[in-house]
Structure formats: C-alpha cells, structure tokens
Design a binder for these strands. Structure first.
Lengths: 342, 342
DNA sequence: GTGAAAGCGCTAACAT
DNA sequence: ATGTTAGCGCTTTCAC
C-alpha cells in the first residue's frame, strides 16, 4: 500500500478535505463548530462529510484534546444484586437523561470482585473516561481508594464510610428513616420492627440509625428481637420478615429499608395470614414500582433521585473542567409519601 | 512551555525510557510483553514504570493499533424495565466473568430512546469499542440497523425479528415453552393458561408460540381467555394473573414466560386464595432468585446462560479478529427443571 | 477566513 | 536484543 489507502472503510479528515477542496484545518473547524469558517466552506465540508459518511476518530481526537467526552458509572457490587434494585435503575435513567442533552456519553462498568475492580482502575487511569461516578459502596470497597489515587475526577453516590475526602451526593437516609418511624409511632404502633439493609453500606447503616434515633427520641428502647436484615432484595426481605414474625409475633409495624424488601415482607406477612396495614403497618424506603403496585400502595420514604443525579453530574463536570476544584458534598432531603389506602 | 513538560501528572513512554536508560521501542516491548527483550532491560523498564507509575495512554495506542480492547453490551430498552430482569443480570455477569480472564473490558451502554440510540451508533462508529453485543430487541428497534451499517462487529442476543443477516445467539425459547406446557398436560391439567411476555420481542413471541404448539399437538384448541400478557416484570405478572382469574376462574395451570412474572403471578394467586400447585400449577421461565425462593420452588424452563454468554463472546471475537468472518448463529437448548415440592 | 506545519503518545517496520 | 524512523488522524498555533 502506498499511503493511507489501507482500509477504505473509514474516511479520514483529509479525504474529506480534498473532496471539499479545503484544508484539513478547515474541515476540523467545521466539525468542531468553530465560528471562523465561511458559509461557503462550511457547506462544502458538510456535503463532503455526508457523502463520505465521515466520523471523526475518537482516539486521534482525544490524543490531542486529552478528553474522551465519556463519563463512567461504576457499580461496585459483588453479586448481581444491584441490578434488581430500582434505585440503581433510577440512577442510570437520571444520568442518561441529563447526559442526553450534552455530547457526553455514559458508560456503565461493573466490578464484581477484586480483580475487576483493579481492571476498572486501570481502565480509568488509561484515560478512557473523563470522570467517574461510583455507586454502591460496601465498607471494604477498594475502588474509592484506587480511583482517588489515580487522579480521575470522581464523585461518589453516597457518603463514604471511612470519612475519606471525596466529593459525594447522598440522601438524608437517617432523616427519612426517622420520619418513617415517627409516622408509625404517631399511629399509636407500639411494637415497631425494622428490616435493615446491609450494615456495611452507608444507606443500610444510616436508615437503621434513623429508626433507632426516632424510637429513642420517643422514649422507647429498641428491642433486638424487632431487628432483622436483608440485602435490599426482595427475597431477603421475605426471609427477614418471616424471621421477625417467628421471634416477635406481636409486632404491629415494620419500617423496611428498601422497596424490594418491602414487597418481600408484604408477601411473608400475607403468607402468615397477617393483614396489612390494619394488623401490621408497613413503611418502605424509595418510591418504586413494587411499592406502588401493592394493594394498598405502601407509604414510603422518597428520595429526590432526579435532583441527586443532576447534582452528581454537576459536581463531576466541575471537577472535570477544573482538576483542582475543591471537594464538594451534598445531602438531599427525603420525605414521607403517604399513600391512600385502597 | 518548551516540549512535553506541560502536565507532570501523566508520564509518557520516553520518560520511562530515559529513566530506564533504553529506547522507547524497548519500553513498548516490555509493556506489551514481547519476548524479544533481555531480562536486564526488562527489569530496568519494570522498575522505571513502577517509580513513575506509568500507564500507557489508550488513545495513542489505539490510534496506531486500531483497537480499544473494549466491547460494549448495548441495552436497548425504553424503560428501566430491563434492569430488574434477572436474565439481564445473568448476561452481564456471564460476559464479565469471561472477559475477566482477558485484557478486554466490558462497558454497558443504555439506549432508552431514539436519540440515545443514535448517540450509541455514533459512539460505536467513532471507534470507541471493538465490538458490540446487542440485547433486548423490540421489533421496532433501530439499533441493529444503525450498528450493522456502521461496520462495527456485532452479535445479537436473540434472533432478530426482521430476518436480517446478523450473527446472533438465542435460546430455544419455543422448545422450552412447549416442554413446560407438555409437562402440565402430562399432569392431567386441562385448563392451561399462559402469561406471555411482550409480543414485539422475539422471546415473548417464541415462548407463546411454543405454548400454542404444544397445546395443538395434544389436540387442544387454545382458548383466548387463557392468554394474557405482561412486560416480563413482576408487577405485570401480578396484574395479568388477576385478569386471568377474573376471566377464567376454572384454570388449573399457568405457563408464565418469565421468572419475575411468575413471582407476581404467585402473589396474585395467593391473594385470590388459590393453592399452588395443587389447585393451580405454575411453570416459570428462567432459573432465577424469585422462582427459587418460592415455597414450593417453581418448576422452570432453564436457559444455559453461561453457555450463551460464552458463545456471544466467541462469535464477537471472531468477527473482531476477522472483519469478513461469516455470519454465524447459534440456538442453545433449554430444559425443564422440576423442583421438589416443599 | 484559510492553510501549513508541528506535534499528542504510541507501535511497528526496518536496521543494526 | 535494541535503537531509529515513520507515521496513526486529529487539533491547534501561527502565518498569511
């Protein structure tokens, strides 16, 4: 082969240039929407781009611009657990929606074990993405450390458990849980149980802490028999509810720390022949399809997911534009959504 | 600035070279595990890489190699629907696991609407990924067309509905559904209903076709009253089951086309006071947490997900290595998993 | 407004 | 076994 005639599959900038009868620089300007181009030239280039079906080569571009226009959402989760969580789906949806208006693309990266975590660290360091949003942190997660030390702009979804200095966006989990518990207290419930999430995750811990604090503020002593835990999933909620019923059949309310667990708990209650909400009142966490499909629909604590995703992106973009931007953290309010009984 | 001293943040190949006292080429050889390097040089380079924390720049590398070592799993789904499907989680898990042994990385791309589909098409064309596995195809999906015409190596998960010539891997959905239905017939069930998936998806269509063909082979005429549909999700299954019970309270079995829908159907049956499996027998599709957590565990049709993901990757890598490799298609057997009643 | 030229950091012949 | 050299396709001064 002589010059660049190797693979006719992908047209290059100067093929467009010669077809349009201008220089590479001009084509580049048109492609990048520079104002310093005459309408005539612009039109000629556009036409050439069209005929050749030209698409700029990202590698070449980011080699010089040092940007990829890609941000990653990293899911650090051992099992496939996370995928079934509507919370996760909402985050993806929110980020996608915000990014749709820009020319950046969202990619999802899953790290199920240590090996994959390191692989993702390398991926980020190699400059494949401009920034990272990190989701679902267990206390033993290596990724925050790996990514933080790799100088990749980083925003966490959820406050880091180890007090590390990183930008993050979180919901007021403790406040929401406390509000839910107070709601049950105000109904006159006296034996209020809880199904917690994993206690090595900040959302699990904070929601449990909120439940306890509301109980204590009301002068109640939390009863260990009324506490059980799941993994935020439906099956876990079902099992936890069964155990609670075994240990404390006299319970009259449950604060459940996630929507799928609430759906599971509801099944267990029905299987045990308990009536909801008269006999046992249930409050879930997180507005989601399952809670809304219940009959009657569950009262839940709602997080402002749209606001949270917008904030994550805002914080991340700030750090991408300015590498030395200060660490910023945001905590979003949660609120109780009471649903009319059917 | 004079030469390349701009950002000391990212060391380059020749910084490593001069520190190690060798040429760039040698460093490149070491980094790429070429055997043609002396142990001495190799060690010197390794040390320099270590001190400088050198990581190769992916853009520069793929500019010359024309590879990115990245494959994308593209999820084409209007809602957040897909994420809650355990089938999807298993696919991700399987692909991740296979890729973990290689130096390729898996990225997930979500296309929720037309705009995002086009964006993903561009992303692929720009050379960000070496190949694409495309999941969850509705009949009106634009992505197969967009990607096929963009010359990106492509493998579909599921037979394309329009008969387009593309490589794909599919499960024998019709065969599995027929086996499930025959199983119910063999039990002496006479009023066998079905909850179908979306009928604009190949998995939905094929499973419904399998149900019908088994019925017809047994000399039964399918009764429209015994057919209802959901979106593969739990809530959809619950609602479909309620409708079926309204229309045909005498039904004595249901073949449900997905695991979450089966869980939903089970709830609806219990709410209606029907006993499972004595009163109404249930067969689900897809081994998944919900079906296994049922009491008694559901009999289900299992797809060989591990085998399927391995095949997808195999087909895709073949097309990546050799752009002119022929279109290949695989259909994997499914089989009935009978679970002992509790 | 437009073109010429210099690289971005890397790999891959080709010499040695 | 190692160094030299020539680009990969693009953006971006800097002249004109």
């Amino acid at each position: 082969m002589s010059s660049t005639a190797a693979r006719p599959g992908t047209p290059t900038l100067d093929q467009v240039a010669s077809l349009a009868g201008v220089s590479r620089a001009t084509v580049s300007r048109v492609v990048n929407d520079s104002p310093r181009v005459s309408p005539t030239a612009r039109e000629a280039v556009r036409a050439a781009v069209e005929t050749l079906r030209y698409v700029p080569n990202r590698a070449a571009r980011s080699l010089v611009t040092r940007r990829t226009d890609t941000v990653a959402l990293v899911l650090s989760e051992s099992g496939t657990q996370l995928f079934s969580d509507p919370f996760f789906a909402s985050i993806v949806q929110g980020l996608s929606a915000h990014l749709a208006d820009t020319d950046r693309t969202l990619v999802l990266l899953a790290a199920r074990d240590r090996r994959e975590q390191e692989k993702i660290g390398r991926y980020a360091r190699q400059g494949h993405v401009d920034g990272v949003i990190l989701l679902s942190l267990h206390s033993d997660d290596l990724l925050p450390g790996i990514l933080a030390s790799s100088r990749v702009p980083l925003v966490l979804s959820g406050r880091p458990l180890d007090g590390r200095e990183v930008s993050y966006v979180d919901a007021d989990n403790a406040g929401g849980a406390a509000a839910a518990t107070r709601h049950l207290l105000a109904q006159g419930r006296t034996r209020i149980a809880t199904i917690t999430g994993p206690l090595d995750m900040v959302a699990g811990l904070d929601r449990y802490a909120g439940y306890r604090s509301a109980l204590e503020a009301a002068g109640r002593t939390p009863d260990p028999d009324l506490v059980d835990g799941g993994d935020f999933g439906e099956v876990g909620g079902m099992r936890a509810m069964s155990r609670l019923l075994d240990r404390a059949p006299d319970l009259d309310a449950v604060f459940v720390a996630s929507d799928p667990m609430a759906a599971g708990a509801l099944q267990a209650l029905r299987t045990a022949g308990r009536r909801v909400p008269d006999d046992v009142a249930l409050v879930g966490f997180d507005d989601a399809p399952l809670a809304q499909a219940c009959d009657p629909p569950l009262t839940t604590v709602a997080q402002p997911l749209g606001e949270m995703t917008a904030l994550m992106l805002e914080l991340l973009l700030r750090r991408i534009e300015d590498a030395d931007a200060p660490v910023e953290t945001r905590v979003c309010a949660t609120h109780l959504v009471r649903r009319a009984s059917a």
